[in-house]
Design a protein around this nucleic acid. Structure first.
Lengths: 285, 285
DNA sequence: CGGCTTGTTGACTACTGTCAACAACCGTGG
DNA sequence: CCACGGTTGTTGACAGTAGTCAACAAGCCG
């Protein structure tokens, strides 16, 4: 049985057969389908069941009062939509299906039981939420510090890796069902500008995008433009998980760069002279 | 004894005397001071002790390869700097002291013990990390969907509330020790542009900023400009905590708006006609 | 006081948004 | 199969927000 949650968590740890069976149980309690555009969860709700994306693509989104929608995260198969309702009073944002999407419905009680029963699974779930926060931090960096081209490239790299982690797509291709307008809401630009930037990436032979499939033609060069360093995804397969797959996700080879977690401020400062320039936001483009 | 962590967590729940004593214990294991500009934790590190800000102001930051620094969060007293090292291999960003800062050092073992001993405290800590993630989401919205003026106003509102939660400042004034350049790194603009936008806010009689004290002269109007709805901070004092302080933090009255968690997309869409305009990013300014 | 950091301002550039028209695509129904 | 309407994608011309460069003022500390 395809279990994207297990595949994802296995990036962090290895499960024994009992644990693995436990995860498979989680997704057997029922499921529900959502049509494209439908709200899976709305802000203000407090669900009884946790939603796990099994197929399709969803997004977290908020809308400002002037009507500008901002996508905050993509939810690919294996991602939990609303685990925070255990703790927080209510969702503070919507989760919307970007394509027809099916979610496994996990009773909250099941998660609670798991949290008391298995230390390893608890840690794995905790890892999942921490990794989500790390992605969020990288989005802040993207929006605040990278120009449109780099920002778009970065999000494409992220999606490629995250899809491949859960076994979807092949080589450098992944499903890419969202419209340019939705992508522009994610990257914080207008759809018109997104269209132009995307065209640039296409023209330069970096990506192809047709019939709802994204193919990253030149992952290495796109990673450079994006300044994509997969370390922030915390796919720590090196130690706790299978060391044989250290720098790859399936058949995808990750860029390793110069150490995934270097403290860049000091080195950048040195490299660039007396104190890094303030906002060389516009990079070669 | 001043215990900002307890004050913060009390926004979420109430502690019995035993639990409260337990929290006070946490911060008695030692502390360390950091000079302004010093790294409290560097990317790549994996600390043995958890750092809790007790006094001062710190920030999470990342630097892009082109030397542009992005601040990702502010850490005010009561905030934990690195609780993720329990789970993640290493920090993926730096934590830097923006002023002289002192941190309580909490042995990881102490936190672990707490997690097994007290369900209420565990939930409170979990709440803390979820609330942090919610702030991060709001930052993404700010950077992606709000113009410079609104973005700056929003961050000022956030800091006001977060300081007041831990009992710092008074009325609409809080410590504000950072430079304009640092603030510009947080808001994702150049220090020059920040300076101009800040000047606008001052000229319009919304804020005052002198001798390292921020005074929000007109919180209501600033909240409007910022589209600041404090719901995202998840200060759920209404139910689990003391109901007497429902809509206030100390002597600060929070804007309540039309329900903190409404699902805005649908209503905005309707209100604005055939589908919300795509990017009215430039609002009245 | 002198030197450094920080804040302020002006002139200019350029990245990104706005408006608008049209082409391409897609699913549906004749 | 083709027609058709709606959504989505593409492009041009133009406007405006924000970045760049540079100079100088103001504040801070020894």
């Amino acid at each position: 049985m395809y279990n994207p949650l297990a595949m994802k968590l296995e990036q962090f740890t290895r499960f024994d057969p009992v644990e693995r069976a436990r995860i498979d149980e989680l997704i057997r309690h029922g499921s529900r389908s959502y049509a494209r555009g439908e709200n899976i969860i709305s802000a203000g709700e407090n669900t009884e069941e946790i939603h796990l994306v099994m197929a399709g693509l969803a997004t977290r989104s908020k809308v400002t009062h002037d009507g500008h929608r901002q996508l905050i995260a993509f939810l690919v198969p294996g991602d939990l939509c609303d685990i925070e309702v255990f703790i927080l009073e209510a969702m503070d944002h919507d989760v919307v299906a970007l394509t027809d999407t099916t979610c496994a419905l996990i009773p909250a009680s099941e998660i609670k039981r798991l949290l008391t029963e298995s230390c390893n699974l608890t840690r794995a779930l905790w890892w999942s939420t921490m990794a989500d926060a790390a992605i969020l931090r990288e989005w802040v960096v993207s929006h605040g510090a990278r120009d449109a081209k780099s920002r778009l490239a970065h999000i494409l790299c992220e999606l490629l890796v995250r899809y491949r982690v859960v076994g979807l797509g092949e080589n450098n291709s992944v499903p890419f069902p969202m419209t340019q307008e939705e992508l522009s809401d994610a990257t914080g630009m207008t759809s018109v500008h997104l269209n132009r930037v995307l065209k640039d990436l296409r023209t330069e032979g970096l990506v192809e995008l047709k019939s709802r499939i994204l193919t990253i033609v030149d992952f290495e060069r796109l990673s450079e433009i994006a300044q994509f360093e997969p370390g922030y995804l915390h796919l720590v397969r090196t130690q706790r998980a299978d060391p044989a797959v250290a720098d790859r996700v399936g058949d995808l080879v990750l860029p390793t760069g110069r150490g995934l977690f270097e403290s860049a401020w000091g080195s950048a400062r040195q490299a660039l002279g007396r104190g890094a320039p303030h906002k060389p936001r516009a990079m070669a483009s």
